[in-house]
Amino acid sequence: MSFDNVRGYSTPGRVSRTPQVSGTRSVVQQLGPRPDGSIPFSVEFNPPRDAAGEARLWRAAREFERLHPAFVSMTYGAGGSTRDRTIRVTGQLARETTLLTVAHLTAVDHSVAELRSIVGAYADSGIRNLLVLRGDPPGDVLGDWVKHPEGVEYAEDLVRMVRDLGDFHVGVASFPQGHPRSDNLDDDTRYLVAKLRAGAEYSITQMFFDPEHYLRLRDRAIACDPVEGAKPIIPELMPITSLRTVERAVELCGRPLPARVMERLHRAAGDGPEENRAAVREVGIEIATEIAERLIAEGAPCLHFITLNFAKATGEVLANLGYTMSPAPAHA
Rank of each mutant, 00 (worst) to 15 (best):
F305D: 06
L318P: 06
H304L: 09
I296C: 05
A292D: 07
D271W: 03
A297F: 06
R294N: 07
I222F: 13
T245W: 02
Y214A: 05
F305S: 10
R220G: 13
N309K: 12
P256Q: 06
E282Y: 04
V283Y: 10
E212I: 00
G284W: 11
M325N: 03
K231F: 08
C253I: 05
A328Y: 01
D219Y: 11
R220I: 13
N309I: 07
E316V: 13
E290L: 04
A311G: 09
P301A: 15
A223G: 14
A221R: 15
E236D: 07
G229K: 08
A268C: 12
A249V: 15
P256M: 09
N276M: 06
F209L: 05
R294S: 07
P273C: 05
S326K: 11
F310D: 10
T241V: 13
L217Y: 09
L308M: 15
I233N: 12
F209V: 02
I296F: 07
A268S: 13
E290G: 02
T241N: 03
P329Q: 01
E282F: 05
L243H: 01
M238L: 14
P329H: 04
T307D: 00
S326M: 12
E316P: 01
L265W: 01
A278W: 00
V317I: 12
D225P: 02
E251Y: 15
P239I: 09
V261P: 05
A292G: 04
I234F: 11
I233L: 15
Y214K: 02
E316G: 02
E275A: 01
N309F: 06
S242H: 03
D210T: 00
G270R: 14
L237E: 03
D210G: 06
L237D: 03
R277W: 01
G229H: 12
A269L: 10
P232C: 11
A278K: 12
L217A: 12
I233P: 12
P235T: 01
A332V: 09
V261D: 00
A292E: 07
I285H: 10
V261K: 03
G322H: 06
V283H: 09
L237T: 00
E293N: 02
V280P: 05
G272I: 06
E298H: 12
G229Q: 08
K312V: 06
I222K: 15
I285K: 05
I233V: 15
R277Y: 01
I285F: 03
H266Y: 10
E263V: 05
L217W: 08
A279Y: 08
G229L: 11
Q206K: 00
A297Y: 06
Y323F: 15
R281D: 01
I296Y: 08
E298Q: 14
D271T: 14
A300K: 10
L303P: 14
I287F: 00
M207Q: 01
L243K: 02
P239M: 12
C253N: 15
D210F: 00
T289Q: 03
N320I: 07
V227M: 06
